[in-house]
């Protein structure tokens, strides 16, 4: 659900970074936050909990500027990845307009990626949304680990696991170094703003 505030002519788009625990969703947001100018980004909100896991969510508001008289604002959210925070995860998905699925390339997390994507599909259905119809991109994160002895999945394996039926755009990234972070964000922003605009501004002229 995008909120269109006609009194201020503002369109809010909600993009959620989804993925298994410790795949780097918050790191994506932190990188975006630290690299952008103050006038385009809002205050990054994270709820500190013990350890480095997201318990509730993180939020980063961005201001895209004015397009055809509408001020477009994008809000980036992350969900808590850990399986046990299912309820909060579902809650953050409420009103989502676009999704980034962040995949973890570690061999040992292979199943987690697949489970998480299924979990996303199921949660969306509960809100009456179909994953296939939503703006979605997949990010293969932690590509910097490929050159280390840690066993990782290849891009082909990840594609086969996660994108064989969805066939959405994928991005290789390393959230800690910043590689691919903005490419991912740029693509999902375009998809999402178009999606919202098509839905509300162009066709839905009530």
């Amino acid at each position: 659900m995008a909120l269109i505030d006609l009194s201020k002519r503002e369109v809010h788009c909600k993009i959620v970074y989804y993925g298994p625990g410790r795949c780097g969703k918050t790191t994506n947001l932190l990188t975006v936050h630290s690299s952008m100018a103050d006038n385009t980004r809002g205050k990054m909100l994270t709820i500190e909990t013990k350890g480095d896991r997201t318990l509730f969510f993180d939020l980063l508001p961005l201001n895209l500027g004015t397009i055809q008289g509408f001020n477009i604002r994008i809000q980036l959210y992350t969900v808590p990845g850990q399986v046990m925070y299912a309820a909060t995860r579902k809650l953050v998905l409420k009103g989502v307009d676009g999704l980034v699925f962040v995949a973890d390339p570690l061999q040992v997390r292979r199943e987690r990626n697949i489970e998480s994507l299924e979990d996303l599909r199921k949660n969306l259905l509960d809100y009456g949304l179909k994953l296939e119809e939503m703006p979605l991109v997949i990010q293969f994160n932690k590509r910097d680990l490929v050159d280390t002895p840690i066993p990782t999945l290849t891009v082909e394996e990840l594609e086969a696991d996660l994108n064989s039926t969805l066939k959405v755009k994928t991005f290789e990234a390393s959230a800690v170094t910043g590689m691919g972070v903005f490419e991912t964000l740029r693509e999902i922003s375009k998809l999402t703003v178009r999606y919202v605009a098509n839905k509300h501004l162009l066709h839905d002229r009530k």
Binding site: L45, F56, F57, L59, T88, K94
Partner: peptide, 15 residues
């Protein structure tokens, strides 16, 4: 900071 407050409040109520 109304944006943060709103996001937290929504989450708070959900939680």
């Amino acid at each position: 900071d109304a944006i943060s407050l709103a996001a937290l409040a929504a989450a708070n109520l959900g939680a």
